[in-house]
Simulated assay, not measured.
Amino acid sequence: MTEQKSPTNRAMPALLIAGSLGGVGAIMVGLLSLAPAVDDGSGPGPIAQPEPSTVQIQNAGAFVLPPTVGPGGKNTPLTPARLDAPPPLAAEPLVAPIPAPKKVGVKATKVRPTRIKIPKLKVNAVIGAVTLDKKGNLTTPPLSKPNRTGWYRYSPLPGELGPSVINGHVSTRKGAAVFSRLRELAKGDHIYVYRSDKKVTRFTVSGIEQVSKSTFPTARVYGNTDGSQLRLITCGGIYNKKAHSYTDNIVVYATLSKKKG
């Protein structure tokens, strides 16, 4: 992990511009709105991926960003949307969120996501928990476990009301990690998240973008939503060997499209 700005400073520009994203539901608003970008660049260098500077060159001097998050897709450059842009629209009909477990008894309070599967990327990974460190930075799974993902434990359970956040490494010292191919996802692709209460949720990708960590769209990623949504986050862009960090984040947006259990 490299040094980052405090979450308050990182979040303020997005919150000032995109304050209208405040929505419905009793999710951890205070913590979510202050959560920073994910710094996943502890590996020795980037894995093979399209030249990231293309996005920077396209926007250099123009300062005009798309009003919506792009759909992604093969041979499609990933560009950031305007900071005040809302999350992308659902690609499939929405499904009602799963009610939050009642705060009664030990079993009900310990429901957690356990596994994530992304058929297109051949991802089948255990989900652990991540939180904020003493500096207010969002932590990541241990580098010693490159195929493990991390659920931000102060975000909603996958399938419940609000944006559930799961991150993972793009690379480690041993090479490619669990989210090394995350940038290949596109609108319409499916993501499955399994929970300890035997419920299975299917999310459909609605959009994907590559954003600079210095202008991370905090409100769009962590802000309240009217339905159940999922955010997958990893690193991208240029790798700084001295700082052991990538310049950007890849963010995948998805909405609940099926549930069972």
Rank of each mutant, 00 (worst) to 15 (best):
L121Y: 08
L132R: 11
T149E: 04
A129M: 13
N124K: 08
P141A: 14
T140D: 09
V126I: 10
S144W: 09
A125D: 08
T139C: 07
W151S: 04
T140Q: 10
K134Y: 12
N147W: 11
T131H: 12
E160C: 06
P158R: 03
G150E: 01
P141G: 12
T149W: 06
L138V: 13
K135G: 15
N137Q: 15
I127E: 05
W151V: 00
I127L: 14
G136I: 08
N147H: 11
K145P: 07
L121I: 08
T149Q: 05
V123S: 06
G159W: 03
S164K: 04
L138T: 14
E160L: 02
G128T: 12
E160F: 01
P142Q: 13
V126K: 13
S164R: 01
G136N: 09
V126A: 15
R153Q: 11
Y152K: 01
K145S: 15
G128N: 11
N147Y: 12
I116T: 05
V123P: 01
A125I: 06
V130D: 08
K135E: 14
K145N: 13
Y152G: 02
V130E: 10
V130Y: 07
R153D: 08
L161D: 02
G150P: 06
A129F: 08
P158C: 02
G162Y: 03
G150T: 04
G136D: 11
K120E: 13
A129E: 15
N124P: 03
Y154G: 00
A129T: 13
T149I: 01
V123F: 03
E160H: 05
S155G: 00
